[in-house]
Every structure is written in structure tokens, then in C-alpha cells.
């Protein structure tokens, strides 16, 4: 099949930038990576991109096709060719471009390192393996699928406005340890994710879930870390307080009491600063009557949901921090010591 694509080129040595069109002859099974290889081999060897495994496990070949992050090796060209589309290939977003489709991953790995990306081991491990149930491991298996390709980070809306946001990949890594029964990181670990640029800075746009090529669901992982922070009783961060207002007000009325949101999140004194903005909103008819809060009809249903979620989160947190079990023979020996 005849494949035509446009590639965003950038040469840092001449600072030239251009959008080049290439056409190559490919077989029907060809992926985007195969196509780039053909362009590089046969047309222009100076085209740069990363690659290695070509089977979606090494995480090298993250890039954008028509603005959406993909692994080039996991992207078949046939449907694109059949649709008549001439796709535009460009480097991933939110990371500085080094050359052509190669981005600088240093900021990505700096955030990885910032989340204490390793198991905080028990000081006194058993001689053999920890006894862990499959279901307990399944709880972190989704996050453990992550190949650190950066596709989620490329698409992260929050990182666009706050480049220091830890971001979906690093926080998914965090979740992988928070819910590992063998991890001894405790509150100290959670503290790393609770502060500025931590879990509460996620805008919940779900782009990371949508674009992850491995089904890691980073946004869900961020929610899990948030729940753990909440369950650990760490409510002081404005982000946590903000979440708490949602819980409190929906529990009370079934709706969100918007007028309580700002004072309860940032405190009464800070809220005073926002009064002019609130008045503007009120003039535009965007503020509900604070004196007669609306209330849902079936409040008991809402509260049932609350109870259910609360119990689920409590159980997950309790199980995730319960600590691993020693082999029975060793546990006995320890007890009799």
C-alpha cells in the first residue's frame, strides 16, 4: 500500500522547523514505526525518532499522530490509508523537543524519581517470599503495566498550565506502591503526593486514561492515591479540603453547595479576597441562593452511594496498608521469640 504522511521536522543545530511530506510503499501490516523506518532508510536518514522493541513494551516510540499521543509500533497504517487521511506526525507534548520526533525525557524521569519509585521494604524480610494473595497483587497490577512511554504526560492538560505537576505517569507509579501490601512507606510516602503539584492538581480531564496505550488508567490511579491520602486522615491540603467540601455538601443536600466551596477550601479570610469575583458571578446569575440551598429528592439514595464508596475506599486502604504476611512457620518462630 502507498502511505503518505507529514512529519514535523526540527533540527536544533540550524533551528530549522518544517512540516515535510513523505510517501513510501509499505505492506498491509505496516505500523507507523515501520513507515518511519522506510522513510529513514530510503528517503531521509536524518529523520530522528526513538525505537526499540516494536512490540509495545519498551516505551520508546511515543509520538503524536494528528495531535494524539500513540506508540508508533502499535499504530497500524492500513485503516489510516484506507480513510484517505494524510496524518501529521509530531513529537509528544509537554516535553522539550530535542530533534524531530525525539523529546527530552529528563523532566519526565525527574518526576518519576520524585515519587520514591521503589518499594519501601520491611527491615526484616522473611527467608522465602512474602505470602501475598493474588487479589492483593491484582490491586496494583493495572499500574504495574506502565511502560513509562510518556503518552499520558504528553496529553496532560494540567501539566500544560503547571509544568511542575507530578503528572499521570509518576502518580500511577505512586499508586503502584501505595496499594502494595509489602510497602512500608506509610504516611511519609503519601505526604510526597499530597502537597503542591501533587494529586489534587489533576483536572480530571481523563485524557491520560484515554491515550494510555497499555490500559494503565492513570487518572484512576490518581483517584486511588487521593483516596488513600483522605483515608489516612490527611485533610489539610487545600486540594483535600476541596474534595471534602464536595463530600460534605453532597451528603447534606445531594447537590454541590457552590457558595461553600471557596470559603471551606481556602478558609474564610482568603475567601474575602474572592468576594468581588463572587459578586461578578452573582450579577451574571451564576450564584445560587445561599440561604435556600436546593436539595435532592431522594437524598437517602445519595447517602447510600456515599456509604458504599466510603466503605470501599476504607477497605482498600486498610487492606493496602495491612502489611504482608510471613510464611506460617516463620511467623510462629517470630512469635515464640
Amino acid at each position: 500500500m502507498h502511505v503518505t504522511l507529514k512529519i514535523q521536522r526540527y533540527n536544533p543545530e540550524t533551528e530549522e522547523q518544517s512540516l515535510e511530506t513523505y510517501s513510501v510503499e509499505m505492506n498491509e501490516e505496516a505500523t507507523l514505526l515501520d513507515t518511519l523506518d522506510a522513510v529513514k532508510d530510503q528517503v531521509d536518514g536524518s529523520l530522528s525518532y526513538r525505537k526499540s522493541c516494536r512490540m509495545a513494551v519498551c516505551g520508546s516510540c511515543g509520538m503524536r499522530i494528528d495531535g494524539a499521543a500513540v506508540l508508533a509500533c502499535k499504530t497500524p497504517m492500513k485503516p489510516i490509508v484506507e480513510s484517505g487521511e494524510v496524518p501529521v506526525i509530531s513529537p509528544m507534548g509537554n516535553l522539550p523537543v530535542i530533534k524531530d520526533l525525539v523529546v527530552d525525557m529528563a523532566p519526565f524521569w525527574a518526576k518519576f524519581r520524585a515519587v520514591k519509585p521503589y518499594l519501601e521494604e520491611d527491615e526484616n524480610p522473611p527467608v522465602k517470599e512474602w505470602r501475598v494473595q493474588q487479589e492483593e497483587l491484582d490491586r496494583v497490577m493495572t499500574e504495574a503495566l506502565c511502560i513509562q512511554c510518556g503518552c499520558c504526560v504528553s496529553e496532560c492538560n494540567s501539566m500544560e498550565s503547571d509544568p511542575d505537576f507530578l503528572g499521570p505517569a509518576a502518580l500511577a507509579k505512586a499508586a503502584r506502591f501505595v496499594y502494595d501490601v509489602r510497602d512500608r512507606g506509610g504516611k511519609e510516602r503519601l505526604e510526597l503526593y499530597n502537597g503542591p503539584h501533587g494529586v489534587w492538581d489533576c483536572t480530571r480531564c481523563y485524557f491520560c486514561n484515554q491515550r494510555c496505550p497499555k490500559g494503565v488508567h492513570p487518572r484512576d490511579a490518581i483517584a486511588k492515591v487521593g483516596a488513600a491520602i483522605y483515608q489516612a486522615g490527611m485533610h489539610s491540603d487545600p486540594g483535600a479540603r476541596h474534595a471534602k467540601v464536595f463530600v460534605k455538601s453532597t451528603h447534606k443536600t445531594g447537590y454541590l453547595l457552590e457558595t461553600n466551596l471557596v470559603p471551606e477550601t481556602v478558609g474564610a479570610i482568603n475567601a474575602i479576597k474572592d468576594i468581588p469575583f463572587a459578586l461578578k458571578l452573582a450579577r451574571a446569575g451564576k450564584v445560587p441562593n445561599p440561604l435556600r440551598p436546593h436539595s435532592a429528592n431522594k437524598l437517602d439514595e445519595v447517602r447510600k452511594l456515599h456509604k458504599l464508596i466510603e466503605a470501599q475506599e476504607q477497605a482498600a486502604y486498610a487492606e493496602g496498608t495491612a502489611g504482608p504476611r510471613r510464611p506460617p512457620e516463620e511467623a510462629q518462630a517470630k512469635e515464640s521469640e
Binding site: 533540527n11 536544533p12 543545530e13 529513514k40 531521509d44 536518514g45 536524518s46 530522528s48 525518532y49 526513538r50 530535542i98 530533534k99 524531530d100 525525539v102
Partner: peptide, 11 residues
């Protein structure tokens, strides 16, 4: 080798 540059010269 087509690529004569020094930056990320995978060629």
C-alpha cells in the same frame, strides 16, 4: 550516513 549532525544521530 545521511545525517551529518551531532544531535540524536541515529543514522
Amino acid at each position: 550516513v545521511h545525517d551529518k549532525g551531532r544531535t540524536f544521530n541515529s543514522d
